[in-house]
């Protein structure tokens, strides 16, 4: 196991590279979901305002 973490001396390069890539993936997933959630919330708010205006 420790040999795996050691990565034949390349641990200082391999693990940060994987960490950065996984972080980019995670941020993309969070960012995409947040964009959608916010757009839905904004659209709902607009609909509510329009509904009051019609009444």
């Amino acid at each position: 196991m420790s040999a795996f973490i050691h990565m034949g001396g390349y641990a200082a390069y391999v693990w940060p590279a994987y960490a950065v890539t996984l972080a980019v993936i995670a941020l993309n997933i969070i960012g995409a979901r947040r964009l959608l959630r916010r757009s839905i919330a904004r659209a709902r708010r607009r609909l509510a305002v329009a509904g009051e205006g019609a009444r």
Binding site: L35, L36, I40, A43, R46
Partner: peptide, 25 residues
């Protein structure tokens, strides 16, 4: 997959006040 989620958000921003948005939501 990321594209499809984002496209939904971008479409909502471009379809302000369209009737289908009210039905969909």
């Amino acid at each position: 997959a990321l594209l499809l989620v984002r496209v939904r958000g971008e479409i909502l921003e471009r379809e302000r006040g369209a009737r289908w948005v009210a039905q969909e939501l």
